[in-house]
Design a protein around this nucleic acid. Structure first.
Lengths: 247, 247
DNA sequence: AATTAATATTTTATCGATAAAAAGTTGACA
DNA sequence: TGTCAACTTTTTATCGATAAAATATTAATT
Protein backbone atom coordinates (compact mmCIF):
# COMPACT_ATOMS: atom_id res chain seq x y z
CA UNK A 1 0.00 0.00 0.00
CA UNK A 2 1.12 3.46 -0.79
CA UNK A 3 1.03 6.20 1.79
CA UNK A 4 -0.28 9.64 1.06
CA UNK A 5 3.21 11.05 1.30
CA UNK A 6 4.49 8.67 -1.30
CA UNK A 7 1.61 9.36 -3.58
CA UNK A 8 2.34 13.02 -3.44
CA UNK A 9 5.98 12.39 -4.08
CA UNK A 10 5.24 10.21 -7.07
CA UNK A 11 2.78 12.68 -8.42
CA UNK A 12 5.43 15.34 -8.18
CA UNK A 13 7.88 13.09 -9.92
CA UNK A 14 5.36 12.39 -12.59
CA UNK A 15 4.61 16.00 -13.24
CA UNK A 16 8.28 16.74 -12.81
CA UNK A 17 9.02 14.42 -15.70
CA UNK A 18 5.88 14.79 -17.77
CA UNK A 19 4.94 18.35 -17.08
CA UNK A 20 7.78 19.22 -19.38
CA UNK A 21 6.01 20.30 -22.48
CA UNK A 22 6.09 17.87 -25.39
CA UNK A 23 7.47 20.72 -27.44
CA UNK A 24 10.44 20.96 -25.13
CA UNK A 25 11.00 17.25 -25.28
CA UNK A 26 10.92 17.43 -29.05
CA UNK A 27 13.37 20.33 -29.02
CA UNK A 28 15.78 18.36 -26.88
CA UNK A 29 15.55 15.19 -28.90
CA UNK A 30 15.87 16.96 -32.22
CA UNK A 31 18.75 19.02 -30.88
CA UNK A 32 20.48 15.89 -29.69
CA UNK A 33 19.89 13.93 -32.86
CA UNK A 34 21.15 16.75 -35.02
CA UNK A 35 24.28 17.32 -32.96
CA UNK A 36 25.00 13.62 -32.75
CA UNK A 37 24.74 13.30 -36.49
CA UNK A 38 21.84 10.87 -36.33
CA UNK A 39 20.07 13.43 -38.47
CA UNK A 40 22.60 14.29 -41.14
CA UNK A 41 23.10 17.70 -42.71
CA UNK A 42 20.71 18.28 -45.58
CA UNK A 43 18.26 15.62 -44.47
CA UNK A 44 14.64 16.49 -44.86
CA UNK A 45 12.75 16.62 -41.60
CA UNK A 46 9.38 15.37 -42.76
CA UNK A 47 6.68 16.00 -40.22
CA UNK A 48 5.07 12.59 -40.50
CA UNK A 49 8.43 10.86 -40.15
CA UNK A 50 9.22 12.75 -37.00
CA UNK A 51 5.76 12.18 -35.60
CA UNK A 52 6.25 8.46 -36.11
CA UNK A 53 9.83 8.39 -34.81
CA UNK A 54 9.33 10.43 -31.68
CA UNK A 55 5.72 9.46 -31.09
CA UNK A 56 4.79 13.07 -30.60
CA UNK A 57 2.03 14.94 -32.39
CA UNK A 58 2.58 17.23 -35.33
CA UNK A 59 1.93 20.45 -33.47
CA UNK A 60 4.70 20.13 -30.88
CA UNK A 61 7.08 18.76 -33.51
CA UNK A 62 6.39 21.73 -35.70
CA UNK A 63 6.90 24.11 -32.82
CA UNK A 64 10.19 22.47 -31.92
CA UNK A 65 11.38 22.75 -35.50
CA UNK A 66 10.52 26.43 -35.51
CA UNK A 67 12.57 27.02 -32.41
CA UNK A 68 15.59 25.23 -33.80
CA UNK A 69 15.38 27.30 -36.95
CA UNK A 70 16.26 30.39 -34.95
CA UNK A 71 19.20 28.47 -33.56
CA UNK A 72 20.61 27.89 -37.02
CA UNK A 73 20.44 24.13 -36.78
CA UNK A 74 17.45 23.77 -39.05
CA UNK A 75 16.39 25.57 -42.20
CA UNK A 76 12.73 26.18 -42.95
CA UNK A 77 11.87 26.51 -46.59
CA UNK A 78 8.57 28.14 -47.39
CA UNK A 79 5.98 25.50 -48.04
CA UNK A 80 8.56 22.86 -48.70
CA UNK A 81 9.34 21.81 -45.18
CA UNK A 82 12.23 21.67 -42.77
CA UNK A 83 15.78 20.47 -43.38
CA UNK A 84 18.85 19.90 -41.27
CA UNK A 85 21.20 22.76 -42.03
CA UNK A 86 24.03 21.95 -44.42
CA UNK A 87 27.67 22.17 -43.42
CA UNK A 88 30.25 24.22 -45.29
CA UNK A 89 33.68 25.61 -44.76
CA UNK A 90 32.40 29.17 -45.06
CA UNK A 91 29.80 28.43 -42.42
CA UNK A 92 32.28 26.96 -39.98
CA UNK A 93 34.55 29.92 -40.54
CA UNK A 94 31.68 32.26 -39.75
CA UNK A 95 30.75 30.31 -36.65
CA UNK A 96 34.34 30.27 -35.48
CA UNK A 97 34.98 33.96 -36.00
CA UNK A 98 31.75 34.90 -34.30
CA UNK A 99 32.47 32.55 -31.45
CA UNK A 100 35.89 34.04 -30.98
CA UNK A 101 34.40 37.50 -30.80
CA UNK A 102 31.74 36.52 -28.30
CA UNK A 103 33.84 34.25 -26.13
CA UNK A 104 36.80 36.58 -25.87
CA UNK A 105 34.60 39.44 -24.83
CA UNK A 106 32.85 37.17 -22.35
CA UNK A 107 36.16 36.04 -20.94
CA UNK A 108 37.40 39.60 -20.75
CA UNK A 109 34.35 40.65 -18.79
CA UNK A 110 34.55 37.62 -16.54
CA UNK A 111 38.14 38.51 -15.72
CA UNK A 112 36.98 41.99 -14.87
CA UNK A 113 33.83 41.20 -12.97
CA UNK A 114 34.07 37.57 -11.98
CA UNK A 115 34.22 36.94 -8.26
CA UNK A 116 35.15 34.02 -6.08
CA UNK A 117 32.25 31.83 -7.16
CA UNK A 118 33.16 32.27 -10.78
CA UNK A 119 36.74 31.21 -10.16
CA UNK A 120 35.56 28.24 -8.17
CA UNK A 121 33.23 27.30 -11.00
CA UNK A 122 36.02 27.34 -13.56
CA UNK A 123 38.23 25.22 -11.36
CA UNK A 124 35.42 22.79 -10.66
CA UNK A 125 34.62 22.32 -14.33
CA UNK A 126 38.27 21.85 -15.16
CA UNK A 127 38.51 19.26 -12.44
CA UNK A 128 35.46 17.36 -13.65
CA UNK A 129 36.80 17.36 -17.16
CA UNK A 130 40.19 16.05 -16.06
CA UNK A 131 38.73 13.32 -13.90
CA UNK A 132 36.53 12.07 -16.65
CA UNK A 133 39.31 12.01 -19.21
CA UNK A 134 41.70 10.29 -16.83
CA UNK A 135 39.15 7.62 -16.11
CA UNK A 136 38.24 7.04 -19.73
CA UNK A 137 41.67 7.55 -21.26
CA UNK A 138 41.44 4.45 -23.39
CA UNK A 139 38.03 5.03 -24.97
CA UNK A 140 38.87 8.67 -25.39
CA UNK A 141 38.14 8.84 -29.07
CA UNK A 142 34.64 7.49 -28.73
CA UNK A 143 31.68 9.74 -28.70
CA UNK A 144 30.77 10.12 -25.15
CA UNK A 145 27.77 11.98 -24.00
CA UNK A 146 29.24 12.83 -20.68
CA UNK A 147 32.45 14.18 -22.16
CA UNK A 148 30.46 16.38 -24.51
CA UNK A 149 28.55 17.77 -21.58
CA UNK A 150 31.64 18.42 -19.51
CA UNK A 151 33.47 20.06 -22.37
CA UNK A 152 30.55 22.32 -23.11
CA UNK A 153 30.22 23.27 -19.48
CA UNK A 154 33.92 23.94 -19.14
CA UNK A 155 33.83 26.45 -21.95
CA UNK A 156 30.64 27.96 -20.62
CA UNK A 157 32.25 28.41 -17.22
CA UNK A 158 34.99 30.59 -18.67
CA UNK A 159 32.47 33.30 -19.44
CA UNK A 160 30.03 32.50 -16.69
CA UNK A 161 31.19 35.50 -14.71
CA UNK A 162 30.75 38.06 -17.46
CA UNK A 163 27.35 39.21 -16.28
CA UNK A 164 25.90 39.37 -19.77
CA UNK A 165 23.02 36.96 -20.37
CA UNK A 166 23.26 37.58 -24.07
CA UNK A 167 26.92 36.76 -24.39
CA UNK A 168 26.38 33.57 -22.43
CA UNK A 169 23.42 32.55 -24.52
CA UNK A 170 25.15 33.35 -27.78
CA UNK A 171 28.26 31.43 -26.80
CA UNK A 172 26.21 28.38 -25.94
CA UNK A 173 24.33 28.67 -29.18
CA UNK A 174 27.45 28.93 -31.25
CA UNK A 175 28.94 26.01 -29.38
CA UNK A 176 26.06 23.86 -30.57
CA UNK A 177 26.46 25.02 -34.11
CA UNK A 178 30.18 24.27 -34.06
CA UNK A 179 29.64 20.92 -32.45
CA UNK A 180 28.32 19.33 -35.61
CA UNK A 181 31.66 20.02 -37.22
CA UNK A 182 33.76 19.08 -34.25
CA UNK A 183 31.99 15.77 -33.97
CA UNK A 184 33.51 14.72 -37.25
CA UNK A 185 36.95 14.91 -35.68
CA UNK A 186 36.16 13.15 -32.48
CA UNK A 187 37.14 9.71 -33.62
CA UNK A 188 40.57 11.00 -34.56
CA UNK A 189 41.34 12.47 -31.18
CA UNK A 190 44.36 10.78 -29.85
CA UNK A 191 46.04 12.19 -26.82
CA UNK A 192 44.07 12.65 -23.62
CA UNK A 193 47.00 14.24 -21.83
CA UNK A 194 47.41 16.82 -24.52
CA UNK A 195 43.70 17.54 -24.43
CA UNK A 196 43.74 18.11 -20.69
CA UNK A 197 46.95 20.13 -20.78
CA UNK A 198 45.46 22.46 -23.37
CA UNK A 199 42.35 23.07 -21.37
CA UNK A 200 44.29 23.48 -18.17
CA UNK A 201 46.46 26.11 -19.78
CA UNK A 202 43.38 27.99 -20.94
CA UNK A 203 41.75 27.81 -17.53
CA UNK A 204 44.93 29.00 -15.87
CA UNK A 205 45.34 31.91 -18.23
CA UNK A 206 41.75 32.95 -17.62
CA UNK A 207 42.05 32.74 -13.87
CA UNK A 208 45.38 34.60 -13.99
CA UNK A 209 43.55 37.39 -15.83
CA UNK A 210 45.98 37.09 -18.70
CA UNK A 211 43.61 38.19 -21.44
CA UNK A 212 46.16 38.10 -24.18
CA UNK A 213 47.29 34.58 -23.50
CA UNK A 214 43.76 33.35 -22.97
CA UNK A 215 42.63 34.91 -26.21
CA UNK A 216 45.46 33.31 -28.13
CA UNK A 217 44.82 29.90 -26.64
CA UNK A 218 41.12 30.20 -27.29
CA UNK A 219 41.69 31.23 -30.87
CA UNK A 220 43.96 28.28 -31.46
CA UNK A 221 41.46 25.99 -29.79
CA UNK A 222 38.50 27.24 -31.81
CA UNK A 223 40.30 27.34 -35.11
CA UNK A 224 41.78 23.88 -34.70
CA UNK A 225 38.52 22.32 -35.86
CA UNK A 226 38.46 24.49 -38.93
CA UNK A 227 42.10 23.68 -39.69
CA UNK A 228 41.73 19.99 -39.18
CA UNK A 229 38.55 19.51 -41.13
CA UNK A 230 39.25 21.78 -44.02
CA UNK A 231 43.06 21.89 -43.86
CA UNK A 232 42.88 25.63 -44.24
CA UNK A 233 44.85 28.36 -42.65
CA UNK A 234 42.83 30.03 -39.96
CA UNK A 235 42.74 33.48 -41.53
CA UNK A 236 41.72 34.79 -38.17
CA UNK A 237 39.99 38.08 -38.62
CA UNK A 238 39.78 38.66 -34.95
CA UNK A 239 42.30 39.98 -32.50
CA UNK A 240 44.94 38.98 -35.01
CA UNK A 241 46.56 42.35 -34.74
CA UNK A 242 46.31 42.45 -30.99
CA UNK A 243 49.42 44.05 -29.47
CA UNK A 244 51.92 41.81 -27.75
CA UNK A 245 51.31 42.85 -24.24
CA UNK A 246 54.16 42.09 -21.86
CA UNK A 247 53.03 39.48 -19.42
CA UNK B 1 -17.78 38.89 -66.45
CA UNK B 2 -14.24 37.93 -65.71
CA UNK B 3 -12.00 36.52 -68.40
CA UNK B 4 -9.83 33.48 -67.86
CA UNK B 5 -6.74 35.63 -67.99
CA UNK B 6 -7.98 37.88 -65.25
CA UNK B 7 -8.97 34.95 -63.15
CA UNK B 8 -5.49 33.55 -63.38
CA UNK B 9 -4.01 36.89 -62.54
CA UNK B 10 -6.17 37.27 -59.52
CA UNK B 11 -5.43 33.75 -58.41
CA UNK B 12 -1.73 34.50 -58.64
CA UNK B 13 -2.17 37.66 -56.65
CA UNK B 14 -4.11 35.75 -54.12
CA UNK B 15 -1.49 33.08 -53.78
CA UNK B 16 1.16 35.74 -53.96
CA UNK B 17 -0.31 37.29 -50.88
CA UNK B 18 -1.54 34.17 -49.17
CA UNK B 19 1.14 31.71 -50.17
CA UNK B 20 3.15 33.35 -47.43
CA UNK B 21 2.68 31.00 -44.57
CA UNK B 22 0.23 32.13 -41.94
CA UNK B 23 2.97 31.52 -39.42
CA UNK B 24 5.14 34.08 -41.15
CA UNK B 25 2.31 36.57 -41.24
CA UNK B 26 1.77 36.03 -37.56
CA UNK B 27 5.48 36.50 -36.88
CA UNK B 28 5.49 39.78 -38.75
CA UNK B 29 2.39 41.12 -37.12
CA UNK B 30 3.44 40.11 -33.63
CA UNK B 31 6.89 41.51 -34.24
CA UNK B 32 5.41 44.76 -35.41
CA UNK B 33 2.91 45.04 -32.59
CA UNK B 34 5.55 44.34 -29.97
CA UNK B 35 8.03 46.84 -31.40
CA UNK B 36 5.36 49.48 -31.84
CA UNK B 37 4.30 49.08 -28.24
CA UNK B 38 0.78 48.00 -29.12
CA UNK B 39 1.60 44.93 -27.10
CA UNK B 40 3.19 46.32 -23.96
CA UNK B 41 6.02 44.74 -22.00
CA UNK B 42 4.74 42.14 -19.57
CA UNK B 43 1.44 41.67 -21.33
CA UNK B 44 0.19 38.15 -21.51
CA UNK B 45 -0.12 36.81 -25.02
CA UNK B 46 -3.13 34.58 -24.57
CA UNK B 47 -3.60 32.23 -27.46
CA UNK B 48 -7.32 32.74 -27.81
CA UNK B 49 -6.94 36.51 -27.73
CA UNK B 50 -4.40 36.43 -30.50
CA UNK B 51 -6.47 34.00 -32.53
CA UNK B 52 -9.39 36.38 -32.30
CA UNK B 53 -7.33 39.52 -32.96
CA UNK B 54 -5.36 38.28 -35.93
CA UNK B 55 -7.96 35.87 -37.21
CA UNK B 56 -5.35 33.16 -37.52
CA UNK B 57 -5.57 29.68 -36.05
CA UNK B 58 -3.89 28.62 -32.87
CA UNK B 59 -1.22 26.49 -34.51
CA UNK B 60 0.43 29.22 -36.59
CA UNK B 61 0.08 31.70 -33.72
CA UNK B 62 1.80 29.30 -31.41
CA UNK B 63 4.55 28.68 -33.94
CA UNK B 64 5.08 32.39 -34.39
CA UNK B 65 5.31 32.90 -30.64
CA UNK B 66 7.93 30.17 -30.44
CA UNK B 67 10.03 31.86 -33.06
CA UNK B 68 9.90 35.21 -31.34
CA UNK B 69 10.94 33.61 -28.09
CA UNK B 70 14.35 32.84 -29.59
CA UNK B 71 14.53 36.46 -30.63
CA UNK B 72 14.18 37.61 -27.04
CA UNK B 73 11.01 39.58 -27.67
CA UNK B 74 8.73 37.06 -26.00
CA UNK B 75 9.14 34.90 -22.94
CA UNK B 76 7.59 31.46 -22.80
CA UNK B 77 6.78 30.21 -19.33
CA UNK B 78 6.26 26.51 -18.93
CA UNK B 79 2.60 25.70 -19.06
CA UNK B 80 1.63 29.21 -18.20
CA UNK B 81 1.77 30.78 -21.61
CA UNK B 82 3.60 33.50 -23.49
CA UNK B 83 4.37 37.05 -22.38
CA UNK B 84 5.87 40.13 -23.95
CA UNK B 85 9.35 40.44 -22.51
CA UNK B 86 9.75 43.01 -19.76
CA UNK B 87 12.02 46.03 -20.08
CA UNK B 88 14.73 46.89 -17.61
CA UNK B 89 17.79 49.03 -17.39
CA UNK B 90 20.02 45.99 -16.98
CA UNK B 91 18.51 44.49 -20.10
CA UNK B 92 19.01 47.58 -22.20
CA UNK B 93 22.57 47.79 -20.96
CA UNK B 94 23.16 44.20 -22.01
CA UNK B 95 21.59 44.80 -25.39
CA UNK B 96 23.64 47.92 -25.92
CA UNK B 97 26.95 46.37 -24.93
CA UNK B 98 26.34 43.34 -27.08
CA UNK B 99 25.27 45.50 -29.97
CA UNK B 100 28.37 47.57 -29.70
CA UNK B 101 30.52 44.46 -29.79
CA UNK B 102 28.72 43.01 -32.80
CA UNK B 103 28.33 46.20 -34.78
CA UNK B 104 31.86 47.42 -34.29
CA UNK B 105 33.27 44.12 -35.43
CA UNK B 106 30.90 44.14 -38.39
CA UNK B 107 31.94 47.66 -39.30
CA UNK B 108 35.60 46.77 -38.93
CA UNK B 109 35.20 43.84 -41.29
CA UNK B 110 33.17 45.88 -43.74
CA UNK B 111 35.93 48.44 -43.83
CA UNK B 112 38.37 45.65 -44.53
CA UNK B 113 36.38 43.65 -47.03
CA UNK B 114 33.67 45.94 -48.31
CA UNK B 115 33.87 46.76 -51.99
CA UNK B 116 32.32 49.35 -54.22
CA UNK B 117 28.79 48.05 -53.88
CA UNK B 118 29.00 48.21 -50.14
CA UNK B 119 30.12 51.83 -50.22
CA UNK B 120 27.37 52.63 -52.67
CA UNK B 121 24.88 50.95 -50.38
CA UNK B 122 25.93 53.00 -47.37
CA UNK B 123 25.71 56.22 -49.36
CA UNK B 124 22.33 55.27 -50.76
CA UNK B 125 20.87 54.52 -47.35
CA UNK B 126 22.25 57.73 -45.93
CA UNK B 127 20.70 59.60 -48.81
CA UNK B 128 17.31 57.99 -48.33
CA UNK B 129 17.39 58.76 -44.65
CA UNK B 130 18.28 62.40 -45.26
CA UNK B 131 15.62 62.89 -47.90
CA UNK B 132 12.97 61.46 -45.69
CA UNK B 133 13.90 63.58 -42.70
CA UNK B 134 14.16 66.73 -44.78
CA UNK B 135 10.71 66.12 -46.19
CA UNK B 136 9.12 65.34 -42.86
CA UNK B 137 11.07 67.76 -40.71
CA UNK B 138 8.00 69.07 -38.96
CA UNK B 139 6.42 65.74 -37.96
CA UNK B 140 9.82 64.44 -37.07
CA UNK B 141 8.91 63.38 -33.57
CA UNK B 142 6.02 61.22 -34.62
CA UNK B 143 6.32 57.54 -34.95
CA UNK B 144 6.79 56.93 -38.57
CA UNK B 145 6.95 53.52 -40.04
CA UNK B 146 9.03 54.59 -42.97
CA UNK B 147 11.58 56.39 -40.83
CA UNK B 148 11.96 53.31 -38.65
CA UNK B 149 12.60 51.23 -41.73
CA UNK B 150 15.14 53.65 -43.16
CA UNK B 151 16.98 54.02 -39.88
CA UNK B 152 17.20 50.28 -39.44
CA UNK B 153 18.45 49.84 -42.97
CA UNK B 154 21.01 52.57 -42.59
CA UNK B 155 22.56 50.86 -39.62
CA UNK B 156 22.37 47.51 -41.35
CA UNK B 157 24.19 48.93 -44.35
CA UNK B 158 27.19 49.87 -42.24
CA UNK B 159 27.98 46.23 -41.66
CA UNK B 160 26.52 44.89 -44.85
CA UNK B 161 29.97 44.40 -46.33
CA UNK B 162 31.38 42.37 -43.46
CA UNK B 163 30.76 39.02 -45.10
CA UNK B 164 29.51 37.40 -41.93
CA UNK B 165 25.89 36.29 -42.08
CA UNK B 166 25.87 35.78 -38.34
CA UNK B 167 27.07 39.24 -37.46
CA UNK B 168 24.48 40.72 -39.78
CA UNK B 169 21.70 38.63 -38.34
CA UNK B 170 22.72 39.32 -34.77
CA UNK B 171 22.92 43.05 -35.36
CA UNK B 172 19.46 43.08 -36.86
CA UNK B 173 18.14 41.06 -33.99
CA UNK B 174 19.64 43.32 -31.38
CA UNK B 175 18.33 46.33 -33.24
CA UNK B 176 14.81 44.99 -32.78
CA UNK B 177 15.38 44.35 -29.14
CA UNK B 178 16.71 47.87 -28.61
CA UNK B 179 13.92 49.40 -30.62
CA UNK B 180 11.36 48.87 -27.90
CA UNK B 181 13.41 51.11 -25.65
CA UNK B 182 14.27 53.65 -28.29
CA UNK B 183 10.63 54.01 -29.19
CA UNK B 184 9.95 55.54 -25.81
CA UNK B 185 12.20 58.43 -26.74
CA UNK B 186 10.89 59.03 -30.19
CA UNK B 187 8.36 61.62 -29.24
CA UNK B 188 11.07 63.68 -27.59
CA UNK B 189 13.28 63.83 -30.63
CA UNK B 190 13.70 67.41 -31.52
CA UNK B 191 16.28 68.34 -34.05
CA UNK B 192 16.16 66.77 -37.50
CA UNK B 193 19.36 68.51 -38.59
CA UNK B 194 21.24 67.16 -35.64
CA UNK B 195 19.91 63.70 -36.31
CA UNK B 196 21.05 63.79 -39.90
CA UNK B 197 24.40 65.35 -39.08
CA UNK B 198 25.10 62.57 -36.58
CA UNK B 199 24.32 59.85 -39.02
CA UNK B 200 26.24 61.55 -41.77
CA UNK B 201 29.30 61.76 -39.57
CA UNK B 202 29.05 58.07 -38.78
CA UNK B 203 28.64 57.15 -42.44
CA UNK B 204 31.61 59.29 -43.39
CA UNK B 205 33.82 57.81 -40.73
CA UNK B 206 32.90 54.32 -41.85
CA UNK B 207 33.54 55.04 -45.50
CA UNK B 208 36.80 56.78 -44.63
CA UNK B 209 37.85 53.57 -42.85
CA UNK B 210 38.37 55.48 -39.66
CA UNK B 211 37.57 52.64 -37.28
CA UNK B 212 38.36 54.55 -34.17
CA UNK B 213 36.15 57.48 -34.98
CA UNK B 214 33.35 55.26 -36.23
CA UNK B 215 33.50 53.16 -33.09
CA UNK B 216 33.31 56.21 -30.88
CA UNK B 217 30.40 57.66 -32.78
CA UNK B 218 28.58 54.38 -32.76
CA UNK B 219 29.14 53.93 -29.05
CA UNK B 220 27.77 57.38 -28.35
CA UNK B 221 24.83 56.71 -30.65
CA UNK B 222 23.96 53.38 -29.06
CA UNK B 223 24.42 54.51 -25.50
CA UNK B 224 22.39 57.65 -25.98
CA UNK B 225 19.18 55.68 -25.58
CA UNK B 226 20.39 54.17 -22.36
CA UNK B 227 21.51 57.55 -21.08
CA UNK B 228 18.34 59.31 -21.99
CA UNK B 229 15.92 56.75 -20.69
CA UNK B 230 17.66 55.82 -17.50
CA UNK B 231 19.77 58.94 -16.98
CA UNK B 232 22.71 56.72 -16.26
CA UNK B 233 26.31 57.03 -17.18
CA UNK B 234 27.11 54.73 -20.03
CA UNK B 235 29.62 52.57 -18.18
CA UNK B 236 30.77 51.31 -21.52
CA UNK B 237 32.53 48.04 -21.04
CA UNK B 238 33.57 47.88 -24.62
CA UNK B 239 36.42 49.54 -26.42
CA UNK B 240 36.51 51.98 -23.58
CA UNK B 241 40.24 51.63 -23.31
CA UNK B 242 40.80 51.82 -27.03
CA UNK B 243 43.92 53.85 -27.88
CA UNK B 244 43.52 57.31 -29.32
CA UNK B 245 44.71 56.61 -32.81
CA UNK B 246 45.87 59.69 -34.68
CA UNK B 247 43.56 60.33 -37.55
C1' DA C 1 -11.49 37.35 9.55
C1' DA C 2 -8.37 34.18 7.73
C1' DT C 3 -6.83 30.05 6.00
C1' DT C 4 -7.74 25.97 3.77
C1' DA C 5 -10.60 22.92 0.85
C1' DA C 6 -13.54 22.14 -2.87
C1' DT C 7 -15.35 23.62 -7.14
C1' DA C 8 -15.81 26.15 -11.41
C1' DT C 9 -13.67 28.49 -15.14
C1' DT C 10 -10.36 29.69 -18.13
C1' DT C 11 -6.48 28.61 -20.98
C1' DT C 12 -2.82 25.86 -22.48
C1' DA C 13 -0.94 21.94 -24.85
C1' DT C 14 -2.04 18.54 -27.84
C1' DC C 15 -4.32 15.52 -31.22
C1' DG C 16 -6.75 14.00 -35.43
C1' DA C 17 -8.73 15.51 -39.62
C1' DT C 18 -8.66 18.33 -43.87
C1' DA C 19 -7.68 21.49 -47.58
C1' DA C 20 -4.10 23.09 -50.38
C1' DA C 21 0.39 22.95 -52.20
C1' DA C 22 4.38 20.51 -54.00
C1' DA C 23 6.52 16.58 -55.89
C1' DG C 24 6.30 12.68 -58.57
C1' DT C 25 4.26 9.84 -62.41
C1' DT C 26 2.33 8.61 -66.41
C1' DG C 27 1.10 9.21 -71.08
C1' DA C 28 0.39 11.68 -75.23
C1' DC C 29 2.18 14.24 -78.86
C1' DA C 30 5.80 16.45 -81.53
C1' DT D 1 13.38 10.19 -77.88
C1' DG D 2 12.22 14.27 -75.48
C1' DT D 3 9.13 17.63 -73.77
C1' DC D 4 4.95 19.16 -72.05
C1' DA D 5 0.54 18.44 -69.81
C1' DA D 6 -2.74 16.08 -67.08
C1' DC D 7 -3.18 13.32 -63.22
C1' DT D 8 -1.85 10.96 -58.70
C1' DT D 9 0.42 10.80 -54.55
C1' DT D 10 2.61 12.72 -50.86
C1' DT D 11 3.30 16.21 -47.50
C1' DT D 12 2.66 20.60 -45.64
C1' DA D 13 -0.02 24.12 -43.34
C1' DT D 14 -3.95 24.79 -40.92
C1' DC D 15 -8.23 24.23 -38.30
C1' DG D 16 -11.53 22.67 -34.72
C1' DA D 17 -12.05 19.80 -30.82
C1' DT D 18 -10.42 17.89 -26.37
C1' DA D 19 -7.90 16.61 -22.26
C1' DA D 20 -5.09 18.41 -18.75
C1' DA D 21 -3.22 22.30 -16.19
C1' DA D 22 -3.46 26.49 -14.07
C1' DT D 23 -6.16 30.06 -12.20
C1' DA D 24 -10.01 32.12 -10.05
C1' DT D 25 -14.02 31.57 -7.15
C1' DT D 26 -16.75 30.07 -3.66
C1' DA D 27 -17.65 27.69 0.56
C1' DA D 28 -16.56 25.93 4.93
C1' DT D 29 -14.25 25.55 9.15
C1' DT D 30 -11.62 27.34 12.88
Amino acid sequence: MVSAGQEIFMAQQDTGAESVTLTEQAVQRLHHDILSGKLSPGVKLGISNLVATYEIGATPIREALSRLVSQNLIVASGRRGFFVRELSEADLRDITNTRLLIECEGIRLSMERGGDEWEAEVLAQMHRLRLFVERHGSNFGEQHHELDRLHRQFHASLLAGCGSPRLIQLADNLYSQAFRYRRILMTTWSDPDHYIANHKELADAVLARDLNHATNLNRTHLFSTLRRIYQTDPQPTLYAEEPKEPR
